[in-house]
Design a protein around this nucleic acid. Sequence first.
DNA 1: CTCGTAAATGAGAATGATTCTCAAATTTAA
DNA 2: TTAAATTTGAGAATCATTCTCATTTACGAG
Lengths: 127, 127
Amino acid sequence: MTAKQQLILNLVRSSCAHCTAEKIFEEARKEMPGIGLATVYRNLSALAEDGIIRRIYVSGEPDRFDKTVEDHDHAVCKNCGRMIDVNVGDIKKQIEESLKTTDFTYDLCIHDYCTECRHARYSAKAE
Amino acid sequence: MTAKQQLILNLVRSSCAHCTAEKIFEEARKEMPGIGLATVYRNLSALAEDGIIRRIYVSGEPDRFDKTVEDHDHAVCKNCGRMIDVNVGDIKKQIEESLKTTDFTYDLCIHDYCTECRHARYSAKAE
DNA sequence: CTCGTAAATGAGAATGATTCTCAAATTTAA
DNA sequence: TTAAATTTGAGAATCATTCTCATTTACGAG
């Protein structure tokens, strides 16, 4: 694993949780100014392909990357875009029972308001 | 509602269930050769915006459009791309309980093999 | 070491889906 | 029927992502 690959992985694992490739690129540049966007995309894709990180699809938005590969779901804030991990019961099992197979994957993304934005919204309404 | 809008809606409601905009465009052209791709996208987006049809997001693939707006989920075949409606218990309720809000939407897409492709796969292996 | 092959990289071009722009055509209402 | 509003087609623009390819870098055999 090269220094650039290591840097990208470290970023996903620390400061850039649930970040887009573009954001990771920005951060990576601060430490290695010469790094190219293609390298970031290339390595993120490879890491996700190898199951070392997880690629998260968000409808109509750029993909994000997650250090946690274990089963869990995501919610993204409709206002600020922040993303959090959520555990919504055992969706996997529920799908298994419904489809009678185990040979599937699924993408679930919840569009909600994060706590901060929800508060801001209600205060705004009260004004 | 103009003739073109009506045509697009009819296509989604009949021959083009779970189709992409491109596919709907192809079909629309057969009936109205002059119709433009932008018109198809424009009207599909408007119809979805107004809740008359539903836009379905599939990770890494073009969006599809569904005549059924009521709550249900989708599974797409990893081999042939065909999409079917599925009902996987009450995911909505499960998320509600987990997040303690009702102010959200969600996209769920299951990636599986359709019956035909699954059979084809197993026969292929047996050869 | 040191040479050569393989792998990784950067820059920018290419791609694909979708939206935007804007002038021309069409519809609508008064 | 006539001005104003809406819809349309064509193609440009956009955005995320991947691809190309020449260059750099890393690495193993001698």
